[in-house]
Nucleic acid binder design. Structure first.
Lengths: 201, 201
DNA sequence: ATCTTTATCTTGACAGTGTCAAATTATAAG
DNA sequence: CTTATAATTTGACACTGTCAAGATAAAGAT
């Protein structure tokens, strides 16, 4: 029974080792800098050992992206579950949380949304099963805000969710592209977004 | 004096021929499907002839993207210059125009914004010289709307421009990724965005 | 224990990619 | 007509993802 990190012929837990190494490389150099052969070298294994754990490169990237979504959901549902703070503050926190998470993991965020996974239908079921609940969670959040009167009820919650996500994603792109590295700009932009999206009383 | 389309050794206008062929291929198969060697075949020229007109593949993609920005500016400034219609209608038209342009040229739009040109500092001066005025035009538009009272003056026009562009880009991503192919959804989403971004009187 | 089966990993190979150096050819300049 | 310059090609290199066939280790059966 070989343990992880052994020098045996059978690696033991190659799948997760590959996932970790891939995440690390993506975090440092981005998706463009990820080659399967370098990855194999990192883990100390042959080029094509990977194919016994992932169908192809895309499947590996999907798995990394799926981890990203799981990570995002954990972060978000944790910080958003505090019912004691008033709804406007929670929305503000949510917006800042979303954008700051993207700033903290720019390469991962880019993999999850920027790479044409969705356009080219490259997302496998495992990824969809994690990504869809993420959007669903946002929808439930915004439905709740609408019921509380924070948002108007003149448009369906689905549409408002799409618009709000669009704004969040656009802001995230703006900051992860490095044009606005200054963190004060980020917070000002988030505040401005909340200010514009919330109906003035 | 060889004319374009000749079979002579010197192509005559290889640069623009390559640009056209690249645009065509990108429009059909996207950036991922663009190989320099296939491109050379399309134009009927050797693999490395390209390097006498573009420094590398990135320079070619930059040139195509620059054309896209020029195209976008032409479309926008044409449809946005009508001062006879009231400002709220013009903003609505602007939003719909932006998203529909993205839907019409999804692959080009993806090249202009989706590919990590900006994040990885791959944009050359030629591209920046076209892309920056595009944003500047939006800024002037929104400053104008603010002066007309269509938007509040409680936040700087630059911040509001960033937020509005973020929303537009997010919507464009939503629709170009093909999740919402139905055009009625697109219009509803645009309307909802305008509805939310404009201050309620 | 030994044999068989199965999962895992490696080596060799192939087609494809972007890119460069050197050689070739056509155009322009003197 | 010669020279210089620009445009294009051929050969080559390192790199990529992926597959087929063989080698090796672990697990299961007898």
């Amino acid at each position: 029974m070989p343990s992880a990190g052994n020098q045996t012929y059978h690696h033991g837990d190659l799948r997760s080792a590959l996932l970790d190494a891939a995440s690390a490389r993506i975090e440092n150099q981005g998706i463009e800098g990820l080659s399967l052969r370098k990855l194999a070298d990192d883990v100390g294994v042959s080029r094509s050992a990977l194919y016994h754990h992932f169908r192809d490169k895309n499947a590996l990237l999907n798995a990394v992206a799926a981890n990203g979504f799981a990570n995002w959901i954990a972060m978000t549902s944790e910080s958003g579950g505090d019912e004691s703070v008033p709804a406007p503050v929670r929305m503000k926190q949510f917006v800042h949380g979303y954008v700051h998470w993207a700033v903290k993991h720019p390469q991962l965020y880019d993999l999850m949304f920027g790479r044409p996974i969705w356009k080219n239908d490259l997302a496998d079921d495992e990824l969809k099963d994690v990504a869809y609940p993420a959007f669903q969670y946002m929808l439930s959040l915004i439905t709740h805000w609408q019921q509380q009167g924070l948002l108007l009820a003149d448009k369906p919650a689905l549409r408002q969710t799409q618009v709000i996500w669009a704004t969040l994603h656009g802001l995230a792109k703006l900051v992860t592209d490095g044009v606005y590295a200054d963190s004060s700009h980020i917070d000002e932009m988030c505040d401005c977004a909340v200010n514009m999206l919330l109906p003035k009383q």
